[in-house]
Design a protein around this nucleic acid. Structure first.
Lengths: 242, 242
DNA sequence: CTGATGCGATAACATTCGTTAGTCCGTGTT
DNA sequence: AACACGGACTAACGAATGTTATCGCATCAG
């Protein structure tokens, strides 16, 4: 199969592609695959020869703690994200990629990425940029963890996820599907599941959100943005030149 | 001036360089500069045309919070680190690079990096790898923040910094200089300065460290590693192929 | 229908962490 | 010498968060 539009649009939101570059991306051969919630998409410490692109659903980077001391999630990925592109330039991943709910992904072989880096320097810089945007999101999570309390911290995550989902057309009108349990949110934000529950209740009681099952609605976007001190500039760091 | 060996050795710890690649890196023209503690090395939101490489001392990525609500540090950099290499593929930095104590850095123009990405695909993949190692460190900080309590969290930072310093020959025998105030550690770990003080005292009382001024000595490395659940694999993710 | 299971919700209590206030000590200034 | 200043350190108290336990409500298997 050929590469879906998602990632191409992701790049085109940041820089202009030539026709030839676009055609080169569209000619990439991919393998399509579906996963159910909880399934491992990419295992850790395995030398892989492909990277995966999200098409539908949500996935997470999961770090298992030693001696069964739980797990920590360090990233969430939405359609259009090149989830483990960094695996191409590293020896492997130090974490697992896990499907959160049903997902569809496309695998691209590292051989093809190798060719692109040999022959398409501008495309290479854009791929590189995609991994540095992930790093910028990591940093923003660090800032949120260090400076926000539970409710505001949760609000920040919800603002970011909604912003990223709506950017790819996977959410609108401040409603979106969040295929995460409160336990998963605890693994992301670093609180106990009970405390996540308190934070959810707090946001509900403030009239900021409605949340039932996996369906979330943000009732007061400005209120959420203010509470979370959400400044989405880190999500769209456009590349100016070519 | 020409590029110092530091970054070349950084790359050679991860992959083999050809003679030509090494020569190309050594021929990079750089501008050398010194900074005193607290000085801004790279300002945020400014479109820069150069990236900086640490030679001596330590620098940090500082995120200023809105309305003077303090600051958060999301990364520390030691000699050999290409601190803001990610600025080359982004439109700018969403944070400031600040000198922690006296530092020496070398600036490399983006024009030269642009040439490398056009003509040296393998070198390009290695530069790219350097930014993804920074991202792996970000993730490890997220894991530590989500899973460790103050003392263990501080211990984890000390283990990482010592490991990175000793890898470039800037520390040995479990002693190193840490040019950070307790206030800076608070900005890194997300605690109040008072609580950092409690954590330092705790590590001291357990006989794990000695710490006076900016001089730190780890007395019980296995104890620190156990407390912090420190697994340094994320720091040396060797690239296998070329 | 019945029991088992998993998740959300809540309460009570324990622990960790933040805040405020203050002392001590070294450094630099006048 | 006298003083101001900043940082390390400490204590006391309050707020935020973790832990343990319990309940209700779905869903699913039999």
């Amino acid at each position: 199969m050929a590469l879906s539009d998602y990632f191409i649009r992701y790049l085109e939101r940041r820089d202009r592609l030539t026709e030839a570059e676009r055609a080169r991306l569209e000619s990439l051969k991919t393998r399509h695959e579906r996963f159910e919630g909880g399934e491992v998409i990419v295992a850790r410490d395995v030398i892989v020869n492909q990277s995966c692109l999200m098409l539908q659903g949500m996935s997470a980077r999961v770090h298992d703690l030693p001696r069964g001391n739980g797990r920590v999630i360090t990233a969430l990925h939405v359609p259009g994200d090149f989830v483990d592109l960094h695996g191409f330039v590293l020896a492997g991943l130090e974490h697992t990629i896990v499907a959160m709910g049903p997902t569809e992904v496309e695998f691209v072989s590292h051989d093809q990425l190798h060719e692109i880096t040999n022959d398409w320097p501008h495309l290479t810089r854009l791929l590189w940029m995609a991994t540095t945007i992930d790093a910028a999101i990591h940093r923003q999570w660090l800032v949120a963890a260090a400076s926000l309390r539970s409710s505001a911290h949760l609000a920040h995550l919800l603002c970011e996820v909604y912003t990223r989902l709506s950017a790819v057309g996977a959410a609108r009108n401040y409603r979106f599907t969040l295929p995460l349990l409160q336990r998963d949110l605890a693994n992301i934000l670093g609180y106990s599941p009970i405390h996540i529950n308190r934070a959810v209740r707090d946001l509900r009681e403030r009239g900021l959100i409605r949340w039932s099952g996996t369906e979330v609605e943000i009732l007061d976007w400005p209120g959420m943005v203010a509470l979370a001190r959400f400044q989405p500039d880190y999500l769209d760091m456009e590349k100016l030149g070519r």
